[in-house]
Simulated assay, not measured.
Amino acid sequence: MSGQVRRRRFPWWLLLVAFIGIPIVEIYVLIQVGQVIGPWWTILLLIADSILGSWLLKREGARAWRALQVALAEGRMPARELADGILIVLGGTLMISPGFVTDIFGVLAILPLTRPLGRKVLAGFISKRLVVSGVPGMPRNAPGSAPRNAPGNAQRPGPSGDVVQGDVIESD
């Protein structure tokens, strides 16, 4: 496997869980709730839940947007603000979709009290899939950069490589 970078395989089982497993769990929970409180109250609760999700999405989304604008105006990297925006959109999508299980995860992603945990999970997810290499100005052995002996790096000159003095001559 010399000279090639090994790519991670996409976990296809995740799609199976997302499109088959979650709806089955949601239907089961809806039936159980409907048997306890009745079908009309269950439908009313789902509608109220979606309205609450829309309101939370609008409120927290506006807060995240303002925080993003402030970070950009201050000239700093808006990593936290972008992560909050991603979590709010994800949580809002889960809240608006019908079902009680997805609503629980949606509320956890939207609420400011529980969002730091979501940011940690999101950062861990992204850092496992992110490889930085060849960034100008970054030392070759900096955290996050590709190792010096990684495939494809052996021939590349870098800031720590040999420097050859010379003159540039332009021909007319």
Rank of each mutant, 00 (worst) to 15 (best):
16 L>M: 09
16 L>Y: 08
16 L>C: 07
17 V>L: 14
17 V>I: 14
18 A>F: 15
18 A>R: 06
20 I>D: 06
20 I>W: 13
21 G>T: 08
21 G>R: 07
22 I>W: 12
23 P>T: 12
23 P>R: 10
23 P>L: 10
25 V>F: 15
27 I>S: 13
27 I>C: 10
27 I>D: 11
27 I>T: 12
27 I>F: 13
27 I>A: 15
28 Y>P: 00
29 V>T: 11
31 I>Y: 10
32 Q>D: 12
32 Q>E: 13
33 V>E: 00
34 G>L: 08
35 Q>E: 14
35 Q>L: 14
36 V>R: 13
36 V>E: 10
36 V>F: 10
37 I>P: 03
38 G>M: 02
38 G>S: 04
38 G>V: 04
39 P>V: 15
39 P>A: 13
40 W>L: 13
40 W>T: 11
42 T>S: 07
43 I>H: 06
43 I>C: 04
44 L>F: 12
45 L>V: 04
45 L>A: 15
45 L>W: 07
45 L>G: 06
46 L>W: 02
46 L>H: 03
46 L>G: 01
46 L>Q: 12
46 L>P: 02
46 L>R: 01
47 I>G: 05
48 A>Y: 04
48 A>D: 05
49 D>P: 01
49 D>Y: 06
49 D>R: 13
50 S>I: 09
50 S>Y: 02
50 S>N: 03
51 I>Y: 05
51 I>K: 03
51 I>N: 01
51 I>T: 00
52 L>P: 02
52 L>E: 03
52 L>I: 13
53 G>W: 02
54 S>Y: 10
54 S>L: 15
55 W>D: 00
56 L>F: 13
58 K>N: 04
59 R>Q: 09
59 R>Y: 10
59 R>N: 07
60 E>S: 00
60 E>W: 03
60 E>D: 07
61 G>P: 03
62 A>N: 08
62 A>F: 06
62 A>K: 09
66 R>Y: 07
67 A>R: 09
67 A>T: 00
69 Q>K: 14
70 V>M: 06
70 V>S: 06
71 A>M: 07
71 A>N: 01
72 L>V: 10
72 L>P: 00
72 L>F: 09
74 E>P: 00
74 E>K: 10
76 R>I: 11
77 M>C: 12
77 M>W: 14
77 M>H: 12
78 P>Y: 08
78 P>S: 09
79 A>T: 12
80 R>E: 10
80 R>G: 08
82 L>C: 11
83 A>V: 04
83 A>E: 05
83 A>F: 11
84 D>S: 15
84 D>P: 00
84 D>L: 02
85 G>C: 05
85 G>I: 05
85 G>W: 04
86 I>Q: 02
87 L>S: 09
88 I>G: 01
88 I>Y: 02
88 I>D: 01
89 V>C: 11
89 V>M: 14
89 V>D: 03
90 L>V: 15
90 L>F: 13
91 G>H: 01
91 G>F: 05
92 G>Q: 05
92 G>K: 01
92 G>N: 06
93 T>H: 05
93 T>M: 14
94 L>N: 04
94 L>T: 03
94 L>V: 07
